[in-house]
Computed example of a mutant assay.
Amino acid sequence: MKEGAYHFINKSIAKGFVDYAGTGLDKILPPTSRRQGAREKKKQIVLEKIEKIVEVFVGI
Score class of each variant (00 low, 15 high):
M1G: 15
G4N: 14
G4A: 14
G4S: 13
A5F: 08
A5S: 12
A5N: 06
Y6A: 15
H7P: 00
H7Y: 10
F8A: 06
N10Y: 02
K11M: 12
K11C: 06
S12N: 04
I13D: 04
I13M: 04
A14K: 14
A14Q: 14
K15P: 00
K15Q: 10
G16H: 03
V18M: 02
D19V: 06
D19K: 13
Y20H: 07
Y20T: 09
Y20E: 14
A21E: 14
T23R: 11
G24P: 02
G24A: 12
G24W: 03
G24Y: 03
L25N: 04
L25Y: 03
K27V: 03
K27E: 11
K27L: 13
I28Y: 05
I28K: 02
I28Q: 03
L29Q: 04
P30I: 06
P30C: 01
P31V: 11
T32L: 08
T32R: 15
S33I: 00
R34V: 01
R34P: 00
Q36I: 01
Q36N: 14
Q36F: 12
Q36T: 05
G37A: 11
G37R: 09
G37Y: 12
A38P: 00
A38T: 10
A38C: 05
E40Q: 15
E40C: 02
E40Y: 06
K41W: 03
K41I: 08
K41P: 00
K41T: 10
K42G: 01
K42I: 08
Q44I: 00
Q44C: 01
Q44H: 08
I45N: 11
I45E: 15
V46L: 13
V46I: 12
L47H: 05
L47W: 02
L47C: 10
L47G: 02
L47K: 11
E48L: 07
E48P: 00
K49D: 04
K49G: 09
I50S: 03
I50K: 03
I50R: 02
I50C: 05
E51C: 07
E51F: 00
I53L: 14
V54R: 10
V54E: 06
E55S: 12
E55V: 00
E55C: 01
E55L: 04
V56E: 11
V58S: 09
G59S: 09
